[in-house]
Computed example of a mutant assay.
Amino acid sequence: MKKKSRCASIGITLVSIPYWWDGSKESLTSTLHLVLPNVFPKSDAPIIPTSPPNELAQEIEDVGNVQRVSILMQGNEWNGEKDPTGWFISEKLDGFRAFWDGSNLISKNGVVFPAPNEFTSALPTNVLLDGELWVDYDALSKLISITRKNSTELWKEVKYCVFDAPMHPGNYAERHSFAADSISGSGPNISLVPITTCLGFDHLQTVLN
């Protein structure tokens, strides 16, 4: 059960505060007044912006798609000797890496996927996400065929499996948690790739096997 719906079921209103909040009490009060006017007084202060600060938005706008995806995490080969305790373990899906820039899904080579509006409209417009487009196990050829077309019917089989919010200033655990909150309630085609903290060599081998 999603966090928002779970809170709503017990009478709690969950309000998500974006990471670019400037920390001022006044802007927070103005924002909360819009959601809970009977609890928080009206304030003359501006609300928290619904999109990242201008300098970040401009930076994203100014660079090309290839440069945009350069901010994404890159994997490194493990030599099998360094202690993995404390590392995060997650499944590597056999799909296409895709960066969500708030309006488009972009491949690691900077190519915009022709995803239909019915698919992308479920994603947040004010959060940058990193994930994998995926259909199923042993279905990469099917995914290749689908992602070449702008077909609402075909894209119903695709899932965007999110594992990071790359512009969030926190560590990976915090970014992963923020990504989870950002896509909560986004529908069946948007999901979160779970992560597990590695407890050591034996634990890693158990997971891999």
Rank of each mutant, 00 (worst) to 15 (best):
F178Q: 08
I48Q: 03
S177L: 04
F163R: 06
H33K: 08
F88W: 15
A98E: 09
T31M: 03
L32N: 07
D164W: 06
G185T: 14
Y137N: 15
F163Q: 07
T120K: 06
Q67I: 02
P166F: 04
V158M: 02
D181P: 00
L140E: 02
A173H: 13
W20R: 11
V158Y: 08
I144A: 13
G64V: 03
S9N: 14
F96V: 08
S43P: 00
S9C: 12
I48M: 01
F178W: 12
I60E: 04
T50K: 13
V207F: 09
L14S: 03
I60Q: 02
L128Q: 12
Y172H: 15
T125K: 15
V112A: 14
F40L: 02
S24N: 05
E118W: 01
W21A: 10
I195S: 10
A139Y: 02
G187Q: 11
E157V: 04
L192N: 03
E153F: 07
T29N: 00
L133Y: 09
S182Q: 13
E26L: 01
R175Y: 06
S184Y: 02
L129F: 14
L14I: 00
G131Q: 11
E77R: 14
G187L: 06
I10H: 11
F113M: 05
D94I: 14
I12E: 05
P114R: 04
K159C: 12
E118A: 13
T125I: 11
L204T: 07
E81R: 15
S5R: 10
E77C: 04
V193A: 01
L140V: 10
L199V: 11
N117A: 10
W155Q: 01
G131H: 11
L105N: 14
N117L: 04
S186E: 04
S90F: 05
I17W: 03
K2L: 05
E132P: 01
N54K: 12
E81I: 13
S121F: 03
P114T: 09
W21G: 12
S16R: 11
E61K: 04
L28K: 00
L93Q: 11
I47T: 15
M167W: 02
N54V: 10
P41E: 00
T13Q: 07
E77W: 00
G187M: 12
E153L: 14
R148Y: 07
S5T: 12
N209A: 08
Y19S: 15
S16L: 06
L14Y: 05
H33W: 10
L208Y: 06
